[in-house]
Amino acid sequence: MTTSTKTALTARELLRAAENALLDERRDLDAAELTALSTLPDDQIPALGALAHQVRLDRCGPAVEVEGILSAKTGGCPEDCHFCSQSSQFDESMPATPFLDTAEVVAAARETAETGATEFCIVLAIRGPDGRTVDRILELVPLIRSETGLNVAVSAGILSEDQSERFAAGGVHRYNHNLETAESFFPNIATTHTWAERYNTCKMVKQSGMELCCGALLGMGETVHQRIELLTQLQSLAPTEVPLNFLNPRPGTPLQIRKPIKPLEALRWIALFRLALPEVILRYAGGREITLGELQAMGMTAGVNALIIGNYLTTLGRSPEEDLQMLEDLKMPVGALTGVL
């Protein structure tokens, strides 16, 4: 028996074991099982993706949730997240823009609704909201909901318990607060706040009754072990949604010298995220265009069941028409996943 045959047999055994665990025993994979799957050779990534797709269909169904996002307050952020062009801590920081007018925010929500999306997220580049910002957001949420019919999500940084309760009571359907990376790697990425502060906000969001959207950013220099660590930390939070970002190195940031991760590597981790989090809304987010290029449809058959449509916060996405055509070609219906899973 050749070495490659041995490897292939081992890969098949690993994939069968994961399939049994997820589809027959209906239990979550642990860190050891995920680590073993992460070592599969590149030529097994399509098989890994096929299993992830099967798990997604079994647990979540065929629908794809489409969302638009808007940076309603851009730049000038006091935090030093090393991947982010909106930090004011770096030499060539992006000039700040104030909170957009109500009309601008509603117009952006309408643009999103026109694509058939069901979700719209208002994002602010801040450490956390002050009282006036909370008030502004709570004025916008019901207005957008009534004008467009979209579910409204918010991303406004670290929350106090009172703020979290107010958002929940005010109709914020989902709150985004990303872990971004594993606890052990986080000090390499930000020093102005801790991973624990992020984790605590995430727990508070759930306690307040909002859906938790808690994302990851891959390609910042973290190890495979740290990606697995992040997956187990996300398992412990059990978010409703995980937006999966790939680093798009931004000029002027400390991570500007990093290279985007390779397409096959991205597909491997899309599949692993699905296998680790079988019931989550796994959303394609920032960096997918530059990371996956022509292979974006493969992510949709490797575990992804949601996407951000149109532009991102400070960078541009591909056209909504291209994404909607991709979903039509794949016979994946667009629909809200809230309350379904």
Binding site: L70, T74, T97, A108, N311
Partner: peptide
């Protein structure tokens, strides 16, 4: 450096 606002469609 420009002050840039990005929205879903432009």
């Amino acid at each position: 450096l420009l002050r840039t606002k990005v929205h879903p469609a432009g």
